[in-house]
Simulated scan of single mutants.
Amino acid sequence: MNIGIDLDGTVADNLELLVETLNQHCGKRLVGDEIRQYDLCKTYCISEEEFIELMETKEEEIIVQSPVVPMAREYIEKLAGQGWQIHIITARHPRYHEITRKWLERNDIPFCGLHLLNSHNKLQTCQNLGVKMMVEDNIHNAYQLKAGGIPTILYEAPHNRYWSWQGTRCKTWKEIYQTIETKLDK
């Protein structure tokens, strides 16, 4: 059976690196816990074009330097060891496929599929893969996935903490693991 897992903010703990990069670029002093929305352009009052241009010069560095979210590796390993097929489904641009694969391997994150979509629309990919559960931190993605019939665990982050969610919300990978164990039968 297949489980989908988002990458940035769910497995790769990149928020502080993103905030640091944007702080330097915009002359601000925010910390990750102050980010109240997923759209960093609104938080930093910059255009999408300016954000894209900045990421073209900094994103690879952020990808390579991101640490693993606490306990993500251990619980993903447990799921894989129980026979779950782990599909990493991310909005990253496909040009980052190789460094993303290397990051996952270097950090011992098991996966059987790596899907870089260059889009936040993950519904079709999840449906095509037969994903039984998705772990996601972007509230807008979670709404879309749930509406499309994909059970979704919302991994809590500063940018989704104040949004209403009529589904399962988890603060830790232990909670995610327990939810999957409780709700899904292979």
Rank of each mutant, 00 (worst) to 15 (best):
L117P: 11
E53S: 12
N141W: 02
D108Y: 10
Q166W: 06
I62V: 09
I109C: 04
T172W: 05
S119I: 00
D8Y: 05
K122S: 10
E16Q: 11
M133H: 04
D39E: 15
E77T: 05
T90M: 08
I3Y: 03
H120C: 00
Q144I: 09
D108V: 02
Y75V: 02
P110Y: 09
W173L: 06
R29C: 09
T152H: 12
D185V: 14
T172A: 10
R92K: 13
E50V: 09
G130D: 12
E98S: 05
I176F: 04
S66E: 08
K132S: 07
V64R: 15
L30R: 14
P158K: 08
D6K: 01
E181M: 11
I99P: 11
D6Q: 05
T21G: 03
I153F: 07
R36S: 15
E61Y: 00
M134N: 02
W103H: 00
P151R: 02
I46R: 09
Q124H: 13
N141E: 12
K78G: 00
P158C: 11
C45Q: 14
T43V: 15
R161D: 02
K174R: 12
E156P: 00
I150G: 12
L18H: 10
Q24K: 15
H93D: 14
G81V: 07
N107S: 02
H93G: 00
I176R: 08
F51E: 04
Q82L: 08
T21S: 11
R29K: 15
I63W: 10
N2G: 00
H140W: 04
A142C: 08
Q24W: 02
H97L: 12
N121K: 12
Q24M: 11
P67V: 06
I52H: 11
H97P: 00
A72G: 10
T179Y: 01
I139K: 03
R29T: 15
Y162W: 10
V68C: 10
E34S: 12
N121D: 14
C126L: 03
E50C: 07
I35W: 13
H97V: 02
F51D: 04
H97D: 05
E74F: 08
K171L: 14
T179F: 04
E61R: 07
Y155G: 01
L154M: 09
I76L: 09
Y155T: 07
I176Y: 03
G148I: 01
